[in-house]
Amino acid sequence: MKPVRSLARVLLSGIFVVSGARNLQNAGRLVPAAKPVTDRVTPLLQNLSPRIPTDTESLVRINAATQLVGGLMLATGKFTRPAALVLAGTLVPTTAAGHPFWNSEDAASRNNNQIHFLKNLGLVGGLLLAAADTEGKPGLRWRTGHRIGHSRRSMQRAVRTARREAKIAVRSAATARRLPG
């Protein structure tokens, strides 16, 4: 199953590597489309930290760099689960800014944007599957529950052993008192 996972990750990451590199080089072309989304996000970013850039072109570049790095991480198999989650997060503003089919007056433009919007939703679905994929290994939730159960059983064994040893000690002491000395 490993080759299938590897191939799927490479295929899924390709769009992010290519578009991330392209948009990083020429972020200015995306500014007009991204401005309505960044204008809504800017107050939230300013509340988080005054050091975060809030101009539209910088935010487009940050998103593009994140997609490029996340796509490379997903393709190479390094930190694939976090990379998939981050890439899914970058698709939200990208999709809202790049494919607002609900604003299109022209039927052909609306149809084209709706197709790309749905394609991006499909990518988000694939990324969520990649983020949930444990490669056949137990997930964190299972391992935590298993470890807690193991610890609980170990503690119960220790308590039973301590009780048994205490009973033996009491019997030994009682026997020792009865013996003439």
Rank of each mutant, 00 (worst) to 15 (best):
A162I: 08
P36N: 08
S151Y: 06
R178V: 02
R143S: 14
A158Y: 06
Q67E: 15
R141H: 10
D55H: 07
T94A: 12
L11W: 07
R81H: 07
N111Y: 05
G28I: 03
A64V: 04
T38N: 14
A33M: 14
L85A: 14
G145V: 00
R147H: 14
I168K: 10
V92H: 02
T42M: 13
V18A: 15
N112W: 05
N103F: 09
W142T: 13
A65T: 04
R160E: 13
V4F: 12
P82T: 08
A88N: 01
R40M: 14
I62P: 03
I62A: 14
E57N: 08
R51C: 01
V10F: 06
H99D: 03
D106L: 00
L11Q: 10
V31Q: 05
K35N: 10
I148D: 11
V69P: 04
A158D: 11
W142G: 03
R61E: 05
G71C: 12
K35M: 13
P50G: 13
A174N: 04
N103H: 03
A131N: 06
R171L: 15
A65H: 03
S151T: 12
T66C: 11
A132T: 03
L91T: 04
A21W: 10
R51M: 13
S104Q: 11
L68N: 08
D55Q: 05
V37Y: 11
A107E: 11
L179D: 02
P53A: 09
L7W: 01
L48S: 07
A166T: 13
A162K: 03
L48G: 05
V60C: 08
G28R: 02
R22M: 06
T144L: 15
A158F: 12
N111K: 05
A176T: 08
G181V: 00
V92P: 02
G98W: 01
K78G: 07
N113K: 07
A158Q: 12
S154K: 10
L7T: 09
R110P: 01
R51A: 14
A75Q: 10
L11E: 07
G89Y: 01
V18C: 06
